[in-house]
Simulated assay, not measured.
Amino acid sequence: MTETSKNVMEFEIEDIEGIGPTTARKLREAGISSVMELATAVADELATDLGGSKETASNFIMAAQKLLRESGVLDNEFTTADVELEKRKSLLRCSTGARALDELLLGGIETQAITEFYGEFGSGKSQICHTLCVTAQQPPSEGGLGGGVILIDTEGTFRPERVDQIARARGLDASEVLKRIAICKAYNSSHLELIVKSMGKYIDDFKAKMIIIDSIISLHRAEFSGRGTLADRQQRLNGLMHKLVRIAEIYNVAVIVTNQVQSTPDTFFGDPTKPAGGNVIGHASTYRIYLRKAGNDRVAKIIDSPYHPYSDVRFTVNEKGIDDTEEAPKKKSKDADE
């Protein structure tokens, strides 16, 4: 954490222009206790919490963001492309544990972005999450982020024994690694949304540099069944994903989400599986990676990215978690130029 960030943590909500003692009390009752949390709030939700208009809520959010810009935490609203390029060169990237997969991602998992992994059961989604819990804690010089990890488990797939095994196989102190992983089991969609809403506090408490949600769609998919509930489900997913986008940018953390798949039986050519959640999750995810089984190995393919080449690589799962195959070949997809 930079000195600038430390100074921002010292600010009180009352320091924001237009917020008095009464409004500050209402914000704290709504779970917003810091300038950073207010800056990432959603205007509609904030208006409901405060019992006021959306315009007033938006003004409070913009005032919090203005304070962060003046403090140097957030960039100015307008910057030049060369400044953005230099900024991106300094972004932290976390190793996945497999050199081939890191090369596919041009260095690893980025901070200030949402990386989505989707695939069928057994394709390696949870294994990647377990491995990232370990690699993210290593110092940046060793391919990590140098911070803790927050993992939200919606499917009951997290196993601390697996993390222990991966840490030991990689020559790390397993007990120290386990202490820096904060686990939260979300039992319904409202619980998940509440956790994400209060994520700023948890990031500070656990000094987290990575947030993992395994999986993002599971609870909403189970609770909102049938076409009659589809619009409500998508609207809530949309709010959830965009909240994660703001958290990733303002807190400079890496956000990993896993996603389930659904089959399209009317597909006669190509792979009939596609990610669940529709365009809402697809548009909000910065990078989208498709995982599939290939014998004893796994294949990762870039499906959507602003700048990554559309290629795929093979990796394996062993006692070290995600690891390279013996040859670790890198393949180019036939549709790379499409």
Rank of each mutant, 00 (worst) to 15 (best):
T131N: 11
L132D: 04
C133R: 07
Q138W: 01
Q138G: 01
P140F: 10
P140Q: 10
S141R: 11
S141D: 12
S141F: 07
L145S: 06
G146A: 10
G147E: 11
G147Q: 14
V149R: 02
I152L: 07
I152W: 05
T154D: 06
T157V: 12
T157F: 05
F158G: 13
R159C: 10
P160N: 15
P160W: 14
P160E: 15
P160Y: 14
E161K: 15
D164W: 10
D164Q: 14
Q165V: 15
I166E: 13
I166T: 09
A169Y: 10
G171Q: 08
G171P: 10
L172Q: 05
D173E: 13
A174Q: 12
A174S: 15
A174G: 07
S175L: 10
S175W: 06
L178P: 06
R180I: 00
R180T: 01
R180C: 00
I181W: 02
C184Q: 00
C184F: 05
A186Q: 02
Y187I: 07
Y187P: 01
S189M: 13
L192V: 13
L192S: 12
L192Q: 15
L194K: 13
L194Q: 13
I195Y: 05
V196Y: 07
K197A: 06
K197T: 07
K201G: 12
I203P: 12
D204A: 14
D205F: 04
F206H: 14
F206I: 03
K207D: 14
A208K: 06
A208W: 06
K209C: 08
K209N: 14
K209M: 07
I212W: 04
D214C: 09
D214M: 13
D214T: 08
I216Q: 11
I216L: 14
I216N: 08
